[in-house]
Simulated assay, not measured.
Amino acid sequence: MELSLGTPAMLFPAIALLLLAYTNRFLALAGLIRSLKTQYVESPNPNLIGQIQNIRKRIMQVRNMQACGIMAFLLCVVSMWLVYISQELLAEYIFGFSLFLLMMSLYISFREIQISVHALEIELSDLEELMKGK
């Protein structure tokens, strides 16, 4: 395989957009945490504790997604630099590892979405119970 400067550079926009999406998820979760804290202070509810624990898992997932994405971005830059200084073989290995980290980031994102969907299913079942009670 021959690696040129353009190959790792093609990932820059994709990784940048992923990091932006991950940051938006993080900010949404941070807002939700603040809202749940306010609700709990006003009216302690054991259901909120479960939600907060779920969000804690999701925050850790987003942190890991961001870490893998940032490392993938950094290694893309390193591989470009290695191509520039004519270290093609090392550049190929570093680029391959950056692709692996990008795949890990996407997998963690997939898992975080599954956790989020599960939390929403619990909320919907609670809502259905309230609707049946009325």
Rank of each mutant, 00 (worst) to 15 (best):
F73Q: 08
A67G: 03
I49D: 04
L120I: 12
I55K: 04
R58D: 10
A21P: 03
P44G: 01
L74Y: 10
N47K: 13
L90T: 08
I108Q: 02
E112N: 11
L27D: 05
F97Y: 15
R63V: 11
F26C: 04
L32V: 02
L99P: 06
I115P: 05
F100M: 11
E112P: 03
I49F: 01
M104W: 06
F73Y: 13
Y84C: 05
A67H: 07
S43K: 15
E123K: 02
C76E: 02
F73E: 08
G96V: 09
L27S: 04
Y40A: 12
S35M: 10
E88W: 07
S43Y: 14
A91W: 02
V77Y: 07
C68I: 03
S35T: 12
S43R: 15
P44N: 00
Y93L: 09
M65I: 03
S79N: 01
A67W: 05
T38A: 15
I55E: 04
R56F: 06
V77W: 04
R56T: 13
P46G: 04
E42Y: 05
V41I: 03
R111C: 07
G50L: 05
V41S: 01
P44L: 01
A28E: 03
L75W: 08
Q87D: 15
Q51D: 09
I113P: 02
T38Q: 12
L89D: 15
I55Y: 03
L29A: 10
T23V: 07
I52N: 09
L27H: 02
G96H: 05
W81V: 08
I52T: 15
A30S: 15
Q114W: 10
M60Q: 11
K37G: 13
E92R: 08
S79F: 00
L90R: 07
G69D: 06
L75N: 05
Y107N: 13
I59M: 12
M103F: 15
M60C: 12
E123V: 01
S79L: 02
L102W: 15
R56Q: 11
Q114E: 12
Q51S: 07
F26G: 08
I85A: 00
I122A: 11
Y22A: 09
N47V: 10
A91N: 00
A67T: 11
N45C: 05
L101Q: 07
M65Q: 08
V41H: 01
N64K: 03
C68Y: 12
L101M: 13
G96D: 11
S116R: 06
S125F: 09
N47I: 11
K57Y: 13
L90C: 08
V117S: 04
W81Y: 14
I108K: 02
R34E: 07
